[in-house]
Amino acid sequence: MNVLVYLVPLALALGALGLAAFLWALKHGQFEDLDGAAWRAISDDDLPEDERH
């Protein structure tokens, strides 16, 4: 059972990491425009003019 000594904190830490990521995303408005985000992902504004398709 000694394995618990590091497995349990590891599990909690991973969960907490996920929670922190979620709270960060929420705070920075990542969920404010769910429809627009879907379209922005496929826009290729970041490429130079000649590489766009």
């Binding site: 404010e32 425009d33 769910l34 429809d35 627009g36 379209w39």
Partner: peptide
């Protein structure tokens, strides 16, 4: 000219 930025919110 003069516009700093524009952001569309498609959902709203």
């Amino acid at each position: 000219d003069g516009v700093r930025g524009a952001r569309v919110n498609l959902a709203s």
